[in-house]
């Protein structure tokens, strides 16, 4: 018994150490990013891993002076992500509601066809999308970065799964009270599906925010670039410039910390929706 207890304790200790170790490994690069952002660009070239010799806000200042375009790009990213999130969540919720709570012809088949298209990765259709938007003369606008990201089958799926759990009696009692379809949707469905809607919004926002391949191809003009595309351009060793690592790190902090805060505030809901979205086999 004694031996068992000891063994249990050792096991417990090993588990604890493993967990803490992994946490440190996870956090270290992020801390490094923050620490590095307090170094000057010239110090970053000598010392890109230790503590700053001089703690300075120079890199952050450069974001607003020499590299003020980054702030503009940051703003573009925000506009793109917010518009896409709002529109995307709205139309996905509408569709999810139809799939979850209405019976209509073709419901199953449409739904399964949509699910099947999940197998087509968005990268496959990039050439077709590019030519389509080129024909509309929309390349190098904010719209071209927003529009294709709006419809997301995953969103419909996730929200529908959640809505299936909303009791139909709620909807029926609203109808008896004389509420129309849209009113039922707004007053009953949206409030009761709020947890999934808000966590899907965060997932969608993250998705659009982190998008790289598509904007890289369609956003080549400085004034509409998102920050994800413009940040790596500062690494450039080609044009005879020395990379400005301090500024890059400050930019990275700028576009990571707000997301981390939003995520931390809504962590539970987001992680639940991750589970909902992942198990669809």
């Amino acid at each position: 018994m004694e031996r068992n207890l000891l063994k249990n304790k050792i096991e417990y200790g090993i588990g604890m150490i493993c967990f803490i170790l992994v946490c440190i490994l996870v956090l270290a690069p992020m801390l490094l990013m923050v620490v590095n952002s307090f170094k000057s660009n010239s110090e970053m070239l000598r010392n890109d891993s230790g503590l700053p010799e001089v703690w300075t806000l120079e890199s952050y200042k450069s974001l607003f002076t020499t590299y003020s375009s980054l702030v503009k790009h940051f703003y573009n990213s925000i506009i793109i992500s917010i518009i896409s999130t709002i529109c995307g969540t709205f139309i996905c919720t509408l569709a999810a509601y139809a799939f979850a709570k209405y019976k209509f012809r073709g419901r199953e088949s449409i739904f399964y066809v949509l699910l099947a298209t999940l197998m087509i990765p968005s990268e496959v259709i990039i050439p077709g999308q590019y030519l389509f938007f080129a024909k509309l003369k929309l390349i190098n606008t904010l719209a071209v970065q927003i529009l294709p990201t709006i419809p997301a089958v995953v969103g419909v799926y996730m929200i529908r799964q959640y809505m299936l759990g909303i009791p139909t009696s709620l909807i029926e009692s609203a109808k008896i009270d004389g509420a129309g379809h849209m009113r039922t949707f707004v007053t009953i469905i949206i409030p009761s599906a709020k947890p999934i809607i808000s966590s899907y919004m965060i997932l969608h926002f993250l998705d659009v925010w982190q998008n790289y391949t598509w904007p890289l191809l369609v956003a080549t003009k400085q004034n509409i670039m998102p920050i994800m595309v413009s940040l790596p351009t500062l690494v450039d060793s080609v044009i005879g410039f020395v990379p400005v690592w301090g500024t890059i790190m400050a930019g990275s902090v700028l576009c990571s910390i707000p997301l981390i805060i939003v995520f931390l505030l809504n962590q539970k809901a987001v992680m639940e929706s991750v589970i909902l979205g992942s198990i669809k086999g």
Partner: peptide, 21 residues
């Protein structure tokens, strides 16, 4: 939640951070 945090960092930014690592 700590373990999920890196997911919030964009791949682009992750690659940039790891260049310093």
């Amino acid at each position: 939640v700590i373990l999920f945090l890196p997911r919030v960092i964009a791949p682009t930014v992750a690659a940039l951070i790891f260049r310093a690592v």
